[in-house]
Structures are given as structure tokens and as C-alpha cells.
């Protein structure tokens, strides 16, 4: 039986009477690289918001390592090992790149002593050093002190991934991490995520770039109109009739992408 780190069990969500997630169940295997795909409006980002606690669930359970985290306060979920990035960049615009990444370390430094630790007055302290190294590892070593609002979109996108990574999550959820990146940046990101995955971090990725998904992910969950229509190996998803119809609305297709 597969070892599931995250389990989405029979979850439903309604917005103003409209059912956007309809009794969806899927498991994310520990250490896997799982893609959550589907046409626009399928409910992918809503699933992320339900797992991270942005939205409360109406029905069902979200289990992390077998524990129900559905009712856990939002800020405590990162302590349990859930970290995420966003479809639209949600960096802190007035903070520097390294400060944004240090925000990702917050769950590891919550004592009163560490809250009053002068990060800025002790250059290259443990936290700053770790954050700068994480940025350098992502190819962003020249940007640590830059205010992120002044940085290019692709750089901001990668800083967001680094911020999510540095909390050392069990499950790293990335919402369209490759959106807006050029070919080289996308490849660099894929290599970075492979490194993260090799450390044992489970990846759950929402992405429209199917080439990126094929090269990175081994498992795929497909949603359409809030329902799960496929769960299985990435190599099998393109042959699934329901997936083809969801994307193209016809049986006569060659590539779901």
C-alpha cells in the first residue's frame, strides 16, 4: 500500500451555492512529485487554498501524515509541514529578496528570543546566511539585498519558490511556478525542484506547462469542474479519454497539452 503523506478525502467546497470542489479524493505519496492539472476553473488553486487553510472546507478531511489538519489554524499548518507558493506573485513588495526568504524561516524561529534576534544588525547571521545560500542555490545569488518590487517577474517567481522551500516542508505546494518564466528559467526551476525532491520533500504542483509537468512529475491528478477525473502515473494521463475530453472537448486528439 503506498505511503501517503497528504490525503484529500471526500472534500467539497461551495462558493455562494456554487459547488467548486465536489467530493474530491486523492492521495499524495510521500516523496512523489505530483501534478494537479486541469482546465482553467477546474478548482486547482481552490484545492491549494483548502489544504493551506485559506478557505475552510465544507465537507471532508485533509490528512497530513494521517492527522486531520482541516480545522488547524492557518499559521500552524506550516509548522506541520505545508508550504506553498502562489499563482499570482505574493511576495512582500517592500522587503528585500533575502528578507522575503527569511519570512519562510519564521516557523523555525518562534521563541521570544528569536523574535528579538537582530537579523539586520548581525551581518551573515545564521538565518541570513541560510537564506542567502538558498537564493544562491536557486541562481539568485546576486539579488539578496534588492527590494523585490524592483526585480523582474521571473526572478520574483523563483524567490517565491525559495521562500516556500526554506521552511523545510513535508509537502511543497507550487501554484504555477513556471508561469511567465522563459525556457532557460523554466529548466533551471525544474532542476532546482528535482534537487528539493531528492531531499525527500513531496512536491504538489499546479501547472499548465505540460512539458514541465511531464519532465518533473511522476504522478498526476486531473480536475475538471471541481471533480477528479484522473489520478495515476504521469505517463498514463495523456491516454486517458476523460482527460482528453476535458482539455479539448473531443475524442480526436493527440496531446492533452
Amino acid at each position: 500500500m503506498p505511503d501517503s503523506v497528504l490525503s484529500f478525502q471526500n472534500v467539497s467546497k461551495n462558493f455562494s451555492g456554487l459547488r467548486v470542489i465536489d467530493e474530491v479524493t486523492f492521495d499524495v505519496e510521500r516523496g512523489s512529485r505530483t501534478a494537479l492539472i486541469g482546465p482553467n476553473g477546474a478548482g486547482k488553486t481552490t484545492v491549494f487554498n483548502l489544504i493551506s487553510g485559506v478557505y475552510p472546507i465544507d465537507q471532508g478531511q485533509v490528512l497530513l501524515d494521517g492527522d486531520d489538519i482541516s480545522t488547524l489554524p492557518v499559521r500552524q499548518r506550516i509548522n506541520r509541514g505545508i508550504s506553498r507558493s502562489f499563482q499570482n506573485i505574493r511576495l512582500m513588495p517592500h522587503l528585500s529578496a533575502v528578507e522575503n526568504v527569511m519570512l519562510g524561516q519564521h516557523s523555525h524561529s518562534r521563541s521570544i528570543g528569536s523574535l528579538l534576534f537582530p537579523l539586520g544588525w548581525l551581518p551573515r547571521n545564521r538565518w541570513a546566511k541560510q537564506a542567502e545560500e538558498a537564493l544562491a542555490q536557486a541562481g539568485l545569488g546576486t539579488y539578496p539585498g534588492e527590494v523585490v518590487a524592483n526585480l523582474p517577474y521571473g526572478v520574483q517567481k523563483r524567490i517565491e519558490v525559495v521562500r516556500a522551500m526554506i521552511s523545510e516542508p513535508k509537502v511543497l505546494m507550487l501554484d504555477e511556478p513556471a508561469a511567465g518564466l522563459n525556457e532557460q528559467e523554466t529548466e533551471d526551476l525544474r532542476l532546482l525542484l528535482e534537487q528539493v525532491s531528492e531531499r525527500g520533500v513531496t512536491l504538489l504542483v499546479v501547472e499548465h506547462d505540460m512539458q514541465f509537468v511531464r519532465r518533473l512529475c511522476d504522478q498526476v491528478v486531473v480536475l475538471n469542474f471541481g471533480k477528479k477525473i484522473f489520478e495515476g502515473l504521469a505517463s498514463e494521463v495523456q491516454e486517458d479519454q476523460a482527460v482528453k475530453e476535458a482539455y479539448l472537448g473531443t475524442e480526436d486528439v493527440g496531446d492533452a497539452a
Partner: peptide
């Protein structure tokens, strides 16, 4: 310059995201 100061600025910029990161 402290982590509390960083939290304050993060809450100023985007409270929901700061909360997601444990603030």
C-alpha cells in the same frame, strides 16, 4: 531589524500570506 520587525513589515505588506508562513 529583528524577526518581530520583519513580521510587522510582512503583516503590513500582505497579512494573509504572512499568516501562511507562520506569523
Amino acid at each position: 531589524t529583528t524577526r518581530l520587525g520583519l513580521s510587522m513589515r510582512a503583516v503590513h505588506d500582505d497579512e494573509p500570506v504572512a499568516t501562511l508562513f507562520g506569523v
